[in-house]
Design a protein around this nucleic acid. Structure first.
Lengths: 143, 143
DNA sequence: ACTATTTTGAGACTCATTCTCAATTTTATC
DNA sequence: GATAAAATTGAGAATGAGTCTCAAAATAGT
């Protein structure tokens, strides 16, 4: 286990909030793997071990994880909201295959620096990048 | 009026579909202005003149406009689905202000060519770019 | 332990979008 | 231009992700 717990607790304390059991369970399940996730998948995973954590609490906890910079929204072009770790992960963009759903992660520094340059021209302060593309992966092209 | 009508009709014919009155009204209202739009706004606009076009038909027609490459989805990071013209418009990306909602359009060729390069490495065939950022515009920064 | 405050689970609610189906419109054929 | 088969439509019901409400449970300070 990394020290996401520490980061999260510090954030909660700073806001006068408490690191309760459900919040711990959610945090640890989120950081148990490194994949993108959505609420449904997370709920199923949590429910296997903890029958007493509700969807509502998951929906309530996710904004706290986002606010504490542990995770961020990603894969914006999919129907459901998806999230991924920020903490301990380098920046990347996604190529999403529309046939098989495969997600290819690609280093994104170069693309971000161009966006930064363009934003600077307009005096725009970027908080969140949204860079990626949808299309067909190499395997699906061959079918 | 451009020749979106022509493009749309050709697409419909190729699919064995018909350019009906509601479809014409929707097409023409979509292309009456050059702004981004969502279904609600489009519905209100259409309803001012045509009380007999239903939401359902709008929802059914939009995928046809997308399929015929006249419009495309955009502003993916907003709650509602938004669309913008493809036909007759150059490629650009969006900087969206999180305070005032202002949308700045910026030429995107450079960013796209980098994405193309990265996609090529992975043998990935891009169909739709999704490039942009959220943040604070210059006016809102001064407040 | 006692009280005030926060948090929780369950289910009701919202709202954009999709679906259903009977009624209407369209096109091809006469 | 009337007729019939096929496509399309409008209205409203259904769906489903996400949010809200509220009484009950957990928490922290005294």
């Amino acid at each position: 286990m990394g020290n996401e717990n520490f980061v999260f607790e510090r954030y909660l304390i700073s806001k006068g909030l408490k690191l309760t059991k459900p919040r711990k369970i959610i945090l640890n399940t989120v950081f148990a793997t490194h994949e993108h996730f959505n609420v449904d998948g997370l709920y199923d995973k949590i429910r296997k071990k903890h029958k007493d954590v509700s969807r509502a609490t998951i929906y309530r906890t996710i904004p706290l994880l986002v606010e504490s910079s542990l995770i961020k929204q990603s894969l914006r072009c999919l129907a459901k909201d998806h999230y991924e770790h920020t903490y301990g992960h380098s920046r990347h963009l996604h190529l999403i295959c529309e046939k098989c759903g495969k997600i290819i992660e690609v280093e994104s520094k170069e693309a971000e620096s161009i966006l930064n340059k363009l934003a600077k021209k307009h005096d725009f302060k970027i908080r969140e990048f949204n860079i990626g593309a949808k299309g067909i992966c190499n395997k699906c092209q061959k079918k």
